[in-house]
Write a protein that binds this DNA or RNA. Structure first.
Lengths: 165, 165
DNA sequence: CTAAGTTTATTCACTGGTGAACTATCATTC
DNA sequence: GAATGATAGTTCACCAGTGAATAAACTTAG
């Protein structure tokens, strides 16, 4: 039903790269679908996607700590939003916020033991669905898919990385 | 840099389907990246993604018309937001809003000649980048990628489609 | 025909995210 | 060692999207 739309636009505007446009649209749709699915799983835990991602990054760190700036970089969030995320997670006692000794501008964010327990409890129920997403994917499919996604990511880095004023 | 994070979480929580989780995260990242890229292209035209999509659907229709409800369905937007989108596009005279004769609850939305011209002018500058996204993709790659994306979409429809109370 | 239920769209209050301005600290240089 | 400039975070005002409540029109059953 989306394909027909793109085809028809391709007829009206013949210079359009139809196949690529279709892929692009597919990626956008799938990204949005997965995001909705994820958020619906997070909602019972009263987390949104960025809060979850932030918490997971901290969880994945051996020392369980980071700074707002670094978290912004890894989550591709603005600093403004990271402030709000940190506020929310601090309020729930999943992380702590303290100031660094060496550089008093920096804020040190650290996951708490309660935060770790929270993650360990929250993750497993999501596994079945993550598995189901890739039902019917052979080992070769997985390899191919990984390769193609990373190739696409590389191309996007190239063309999007033209950011020097 | 993301892979290490997932690997480490996989060590801490051994039941996790690491490969699938990685793909999932990749899809989310790519979806977000493409969306950002698209929106940065749309910004000079003072459109956002949903407004663009709405306009393109109307453009793709032979008669250039639809209703808010139908547009909600195709754009996966809430009715609330569609009202706002229509307001914005009407204000710019890219679409018109009129009420249906047969069913006076329905609102008829129709793209204007100015709207069509606008689309025809706006699209071509985006083509080079859409092409560049898939630079280095062979014909086989494109076929594989399409196949895998649609398989994934099918699986998501299955598990997400459990919506009957 | 009318009462109850359904569908279609809008309004309102709220959440999530962003850019611009601001504050505080650190680094550099004259 | 003050002045200038760069960095890290926060605050504020705004944009985009959502759920719940509402209004208007249609449908159906008695």
């Amino acid at each position: 039903m989306m394909d027909e739309g793109i085809d028809r636009v391709g007829q009206l505007v013949p210079a359009m790269p139809v196949a690529q446009a279709r892929m692009c649209r597919l990626m956008l749709m799938l990204g949005a679908t997965i995001e909705r699915e994820l958020e619906s799983r997070l909602k019972p835990n009263k987390l949104n996607h960025s809060e979850f991602l932030t918490l997971m990054i901290l969880y994945s760190r051996p020392d369980g700590s980071s700074t707002p700036g670094e978290l912004c970089e890894f989550t591709t969030q603005g600093a403004t939003n990271m402030t709000r995320i940190a506020n929310a997670l601090v309020k729930r006692a999943l992380i702590t916020r303290g100031s660094s000794k060496e550089d008093r501008r920096r804020v040190l964010i650290r996951i708490t033991p309660a935060g770790r327990r929270f993650v360990q409890k929250m993750l497993p129920p999501m596994f079945p669905q993550v598995g189901a997403m890739f039902a019917g994917f052979s080992a070769g499919d997985m390899r191919q898919f990984d390769r193609l996604l990373r190739k696409l990511a590389g191309n996007l880095d190239q063309s999007g990385g033209q950011r020097l004023p």
